[in-house]
């Protein structure tokens, strides 16, 4: 959707103070766990991507930092022969809005766990989930929900069926809409139609606690996805005993947001009644190899602009600041 009037909100007194307080609290949490701050330049060095905010400085086309993960990846590959294993960031990104209510300038805090390719990654995934579990309490949210997903639950069956391009995109779009009937429509006449529709129905059948994993048994790809299921099961067993009060853990088998980027486990933080996720992340093992470095990575990003909006529109969801 084209948005003719970009939204550049100013932050006044309480919101500005809240942003500074939240940034400090979150960066403190990350520093306590060994995450060292990097601050990539506000001006992009790379070719300006489509979604970036671009303008001319004289004859030169300039773009502002539009995504921390991408900006950090550029910085890390330029600067380090071997990457630091834990990095954190805080600041603003500037992105063209897709929806009319989205602001152009967005404040984020996030972190990244980077390892050499081939190193066991399960512990890093759990470490990130544990960190994200601490975020709602730090921000004063009265209650929150952490969704655990895994991009491979959709990616691997599509690859196994040799489904790529427009048809795969249509299946992913249907899953994003949580519409198994659209999967059936998209694959009408394709040899994998029945299998992939049954798989979609299994992924979409539950959105609940750890028991949701059992829905995978109804999928024709249950054997193919055994490793992912076991990984999620182990993560749940590690996380459930340390679940903070007022945080609910749910398994969302049909999380396909960012499927082109994520390759494994995904994390999404919600507050009851919030219209947008408040933090998101996951494993994206193809990013650094695509830049010529044999590194694997996972991370998450807390979307502070959305949290500021939520605090303004739904103050009942937050504890009174001390």
């Amino acid at each position: 959707m084209a948005v003719r009037t970009p939204h550049f909100p100013d932050l006044l007194f309480n919101s500005a103070a809240r942003l500074r307080r939240w940034e400090g609290a979150l960066m403190g949490l990350l520093a306590d766990h060994g995450y060292r701050e990097l601050h990539p330049s506000l001006v992009l060095r790379e070719t300006p991507p489509e979604g970036a905010l671009r303008f001319f400085d004289g004859d030169e086309l300039v773009a502002l930092r539009w995504d921390f993960t991408v900006a950090l990846a550029g910085l890390l590959t330029r600067t380090f022969p071997a990457p630091p294993d834990r990095v954190a960031y805080a600041g603003a990104v500037f992105r063209r809005p897709v929806q009319p209510w989205e602001a152009v300038e967005r404040f984020e805090v996030g972190c990244e766990r980077i390892q050499p390719e081939g190193e066991p990654a399960a512990e890093a995934d759990v470490e990130l989930a544990r960190l994200l579990m601490a975020v709602p309490g730090l921000l004063g949210l009265k209650s929150a929900i952490l969704h655990l997903g895994n991009a491979a639950l959709v990616r691997r069956p599509l690859e196994a069926e040799g489904l790529f391009g427009e048809l795969a995109d249509a299946v992913v779009a249907a899953l994003s809409r949580r519409a198994p009937h659209r999967v059936r429509e998209a694959l009408d006449g394709h040899p994998s139609a029945v299998r992939l529709t049954t798989h979609a129905e299994a992924l979409l059948s539950e959105l609940d606690g750890p028991g949701t994993l059992s829905a995978l048994a109804a999928s024709p790809y249950a054997a193919l996805l055994e490793e992912e299921r076991n990984h999620m099961d182990r993560a749940l067993k590690a996380l459930l005993p340390i679940l903070p009060p007022n945080l609910e853990l749910r398994v969302d088998l049909a999380d396909v947001a960012g499927l082109g980027f994520y390759t494994g486990p995904t994390l999404r933080l919600w507050a009851p009644g919030a219209q947008q996720e408040l933090a998101a992340g996951g494993r994206y093992d193809r990013l650094f190899p695509g830049l010529g470095r044999p590194w694997q990575a996972a991370g998450f990003c807390v979307r502070l602009s959305r949290l500021l909006d939520l605090a303004a529109t739904r103050p009942d969801l937050f504890e009174e600041p001390r």
């Binding site: 929900i145 949580r178 959105l207 919600w270 009851p272 009644g273 919030a274 219209q275």
Partner: peptide, 18 residues
Amino acid sequence: ARLVAARGAYLSEPGRIR
């Protein structure tokens, strides 16, 4: 005709919306 749901409401409050 299709039954549609708000993504935020459905994912953040499935106990009310489902």
